[in-house]
Amino acid sequence: MSIEVITPGLCTTVQDTGRFGFQQVGVSVSGVMDKQAVQMANMLVGNQQTDAVLEVTMRGPSLLFHKDMLIAICGGDFKVTINDRSVLPNRAVWIRSGSILKFGLAKEGCRAYLAVAGGWDVPLVMGSRSTNLRGSFGGFAGRMLAAGDKLVQSSPGSFSQFLANQLEKKAGAAPFYQANWFIPSSTLVKNGEAVVRVIQGEQFADFSEESRQSFFEQTFQVSTQSDRMGYRLTGPALELTQSMELISAAVTVGTIQVPPNGQPIILMADRQTIGGYPKIGYVPTIDLPIVAQLRPGEKIHFQEISLRDAQKALIERDSLMKAIKLGIEVTVGWR
């Protein structure tokens, strides 16, 4: 046993980068909502990008550690403590067996991620450790964590062990030790209003001129009916110039679809594989972490981006992430 859940929080699940290859039989991709935060958290503990993490939502869990571990917390700011002493996000932390790690309420952002060296050891189901909540499979027993659940850590790689040993030495007798270097996080919205870029969707031109204008000029609010499946937005009603019956087809993460009531929905990680509503746009991969950290009541201002610029931005971020990884390895003396 590695950790035990004392209180589970609002919606705490095991997730990895997603379950691929089964959308053709109706299986949602699932996976973490904020991939950028998870990429960073996994990097900080020397993991592969695909290693499973815990996703924590709005109100976080309390966890009792039964083993010394190397961990990192990224994403939303949940005022995390270990044995009631505050822990900073975005850095590697060594934690001693017997300590209690407590997530509070989300102060900024909506979701935080707890990565552990080696990743969380739950069975691979159809190639992924992600929880499919609707289908009740994958992750930890196909569900959110509950009090009393016990999670096991997979064996860490050699770089993770190197890091852990370094921090453990500095910890002395303390219950934990956090590295004095960190990765700056940038996707959290500070003033409650996010700028999210959008690629025009297949039916963009079928919306009235007024609707197309207000889509980019006015703001939309994230409604309380927003979850891992999708974000329902409220704002100016978006209208088609004439009603259309579309033939259902595949929909992807970030798709902004508009049902007949005119209020757009952004499809997220647990979306269905097939959809039939008009698509006014797509949030590009690069901006999905921003959306993933928005919470009910916060506002979105959409800004147009071309497919070309969206793909270029993604490629640039990938280079940046590789540079950060190298930077970590150099900083700690691994290279």
Partner: peptide
């Protein structure tokens, strides 16, 4: 992966 639809095949 690829996803067949009524009239489409979507390739990710």
């Amino acid at each position: 992966e690829s996803v067949p639809g009524f009239t489409t095949v979507t390739v990710y």
